[in-house]
């Protein structure tokens, strides 16, 4: 069984379903990327995995444990970390305080984890006393990812981490994400920049209208002429 196994997810916000029998799986230490056209339900699928959406059918298990009935907060305690697409930092608090708040549920000493985050994102160490709201878009994303890492998650979920950042910063962020995965953390990520994201993905999920259309390794999806023509722009 996969480390994260969200299978047969069906549900939506109101009466109509957005997800239709959607399945997402991530192996330990691997990167899974969800791509697809606008309105395909990519973010909704991720929110469903995190418990922010009530499912009518389907099941989510993490490390073999059924977490379908748990709230997002409880899932954080079970080892999920979530980085929302927007409003993902505390703008009038310093970088260091943002990380501290990330570790709010931890009773033990978290200075070691903070050091690791600073090693991963050295710029944050330089700006640790600066308010997160004053940072550039890319730096703010680093704070957001760092905040989520403070609970030492086993699965990190990123909702379009590169939205609104420059291509150089995007490459940099993807490099960091690969580094995070190498430490054994599984990553589930929604991305608009499908081509670049699939390049680093172990598994790629192409969603269309809330259902799985193609599922394969990132490289295989990139090589599939049909996927290229319809979703990657040739």
């Amino acid at each position: 069984m996969s480390f994260l196994d969200a299978s047969g997810m069906t549900g939506g916000y109101g009466a109509t379903d957005i997800l239709h029998d959607c399945t997402l799986r991530v192996e330990k230490g691997q990167i899974a990327v969800i791509v697809g056209p606008n309105g395909a339900g990519k973010s909704t699928a991720m929110k469903a995995v995190f418990g922010m959406l009530r499912l009518r059918a389907g099941k989510v298990t993490l490390d073999g444990e059924d977490i379908t009935a748990l709230s997002p907060q409880e899932r954080v305690r079970k080892g999920m970390g979530f980085v929302p697409q927007v409003n993902n930092v505390f703008p009038t608090m310093t970088v260091e305080e943002n990380l501290e708040m990330g570790a709010f549920i931890r009773e033990d000493d978290f200075t070691g984890t903070m050091e690791q985050v600073f090693e991963l994102f050295p710029i944050l160490c330089d700006k640790r006393r600066q308010n997160a709201g004053e940072l550039s878009g890319g730096q703010r994303q680093q704070v957001a990812v760092g905040r989520a890492l403070m609970t030492k998650p086993k699965l990190l979920m990123l909702d379009e981490p590169t939205a609104g950042v420059s291509p150089i910063v995007m490459d940099e962020l993807f490099d960091r994400i690969i580094e995070i995965a190498r430490t054994g953390i599984s990553i589930l990520m929604v991305e608009q920049n499908a081509r670049q994201a699939l390049e680093i993905a172990d598994t790629g999920y192409v969603l269309v209208q809330g259902a799985n259309r193609y599922t394969d390794t990132g490289a295989a999806l990139m090589a599939d002429p049909e996927v290229r023509r319809t979703f990657l722009g040739g």
Partner: peptide, 22 residues
């Protein structure tokens, strides 16, 4: 203080504060 910081966090971004377990 931890409580004081959690209050500022809650004021700054309620959703993220809830997500952080505050």
């Amino acid at each position: 203080t931890r409580t004081g910081k959690s209050m500022r966090a809650f004021s700054d971004n309620e959703d993220l504060a809830l997500l952080s377990g505050i």
